[in-house]
Design a protein around this nucleic acid. Structure first.
Lengths: 194, 194
DNA sequence: CTTGCCATGTAATTCGTTACATGATTCG
DNA sequence: CGAATCATGTAACGAATTACATGGCAAG
């Protein structure tokens, strides 16, 4: 359900085509809510059917057209309603922790290798988050720049600060994961003679 | 897919009925992989059909019976295989961060209320995790006690340490969330005159 | 004229959620 | 004898994954 809100959130910045969305998704909203193309296009269609979005056909090249989606008043209203409604706490569902709890079933070497992979993933992810945070802070992030272009400084400040707040949370989370992985290496060393 | 592995993991400790599982789930595995009853029973049936589990009918009262599930060799093999296979990195998908990035669309009072609810949730969750960690450390946790009863001390030590390791990760994560929520209150205070 | 990007999906399947549904047993 | 707990699901729906599928455009 949150995919809808992620899409509306993105489109409040500026109208976009499905392709634009699937691209900027990976550079912004996907950090908090990932979705593949194959989920985005049908979702846009359903949202248009439900009146949350309207679309304008735009010619593209000689024959092609593309659809630019705009958030409707109804869409914005539904988004605001969701924003103000209580958040249902998410149940944990993380295979990494499930595995960790049963590491004794696996070969220590395999465990070590998995920790290394996790570490590489989180380090890369952390770097991406920090890069993005920097482009938010200096307002060079393209989606953000388009969004705040029409706003007064006071409003722009709020928008930017909240985005940075969200990224600071994601960065803290990534660092926590990395620290936990470090502890994992230390535990392996202790339990299985190096 | 991980539900299967969560169920096998639980059943390696001791054979259980669907009801036992759905109960101990909430006290142990659910901290890393939540699932409701309505997902557990059908999953058990499918896993038995696929040969990962076998079941024994046990009389219960005068008319009733219940099914006790055991992990088969095939089930254990598949579990070990999963344990040693690389972990696919999870995409982020967290409505709390999605909302936070767009807090400027909501009324500050509503935001504050949501932060309070999140704080209450995480504080309670953290307390549960710390309780559980304590019962793991002193080996009084029932599922763990049953699991390590037949093991040598060396093996038991490994089992316990990995469980604690997993919980330490969950606890660190909860603390990170709480710190982020604290920062959220501070940000609200700063941006919207108290 | 070919490569890479722009553009938009469908189809099949599984996973997960929510609500509903039923009955037996044990204990006080 | 009534309440709590034991016991096991089904049905309907929406969300998500994975793989497949197609074709135009721009630039070198």
């Amino acid at each position: 359900m949150s995919l809808r809100y992620a899409l509306i959130a993105l489109l409040t910045g500026r109208p976009m085509t499905g392709y634009d969305i699937s691209k900027s998704f990976s550079r912004s909203v996907a950090h908090v809510w990932h979705a593949p193309d194959s989920q985005i296009y049908p979702a846009l269609n359903r949202m248009e059917r439900d009146g949350l979005l309207s679309s304008v056909e735009i010619p593209w090249g000689k024959k092609g057209t593309k659809k630019e989606y705009h958030v409707t008043d109804a869409g914005l209203a539904e988004f605001r309603e969701w924003m103000e409604s209580p958040l249902v706490p998410q149940w944990q569902r993380d295979p990494a922790y499930l595995k960790a709890a049963y590491f004794d079933f696996a070969d220590p070497a395999a465990v070590r290798e998995q920790l290394r992979q996790q570490q590489a993933y989180w380090e890369e992810h952390l770097a991406t988050l920090e890069d993005t945070r920097a482009t938010l802070a200096d307002r060079s992030h393209p989606t953000l720049a388009a969004r705040i272009a029409e706003l007064e400084e006071r409003e722009a400040e709020l928008t930017v600060r909240y985005k940075i707040y969200a990224y600071d949370g994601l960065i803290a989370r990534a660092r926590t994961e990395l620290a936990w992985i470090q502890d994992g290496f230390a535990l392996l060393d202790e339990l299985h003679d190096t």
